[in-house]
Amino acid sequence: MSEHLSTATVPGVVPYAGAAVGDYLQILKPRVMSLVVFTAFVGLVLAPGHLHPVLAAVAVLCIAVGAGASGAINMWYDRDIDAVMRRTANRPLPAGRMMPGEALGFGIVLAVGSVAVMGLAVNWVAAELLALTIAFYVFVYTMWLKRRTPQNIVIGGAAGALPPLVGWAAVTGDVGWGGIALFAIIFFWTPPHFWALSLYRAGEYEAAGIPMLPVVAGARETKRQMLIYTLMLWPAALMPWLLGIAGPVYGACAGVLSLVFTATAIRVWADDSERSARQMFAFSLLYLFLIFTVLLVERVAGGRW
């Protein structure tokens, strides 16, 4: 701050005005946030019990803000490697539109605020799980694993898988099997999703020094592991039906979607072109969206919410 004040005294040098409102919104990673909110909302709807609609809205808001806080702190920490990759070079920090301290302070305030409001308004189990989600993403994934191991997104994927569990806990006040099933779906979906992306972005990850699996172990090994994870996703995807929190319509849809997802992995395995990996990445997004949409629609249509 003092260096900004000092520049104001230099003729011709305009003092830094701080980042624009749009930049603050951008560091919250709104696209990631929308997926987090959606999955958390499904967890909230599927959980047995009742939560006042206002408190449910507060829970979803806290989860969204907590996810945004994680994104902001992640962008603060990763600003050096973001500057190297084309996909992330125009983010507010590497582009020079925001000072690192602004992003860090913003992220910490949002993280503490979202957890505190969740605890005070909803319940402290959900608040603790939200705090765990933020801490896992920031400390375990961003600071510890991301730059050290090709298993970064496997273990770190737990952070992205926790939001439906937070939504579940907001209603029930504990961690139920249904919430764990939703966690498992996202956990096993994450590796093939990110590895499909990293297959055709391997050069950028390598330049940034991030040891993604295609960079460290090569495309063939990555494709093999992608296929294994799509197979491991099967029982996780069918678990809500087997546990009775979803009906046969969901079971059939989950089976068909998992079959298609596995087929895309086989296609990536057999095809060395970039196109199949891009298509698998696109389908992985559709897969998760449809799985959770069917869960939601079936529950709402069944009148159990």
Partner: peptide, 19 residues
Amino acid sequence: VTGDVGAERRRRIRARNRA
């Protein structure tokens, strides 16, 4: 140029305060 930058700076600070 300095005037434009000054105006942009004021606009940005005002927008942030409103947010």
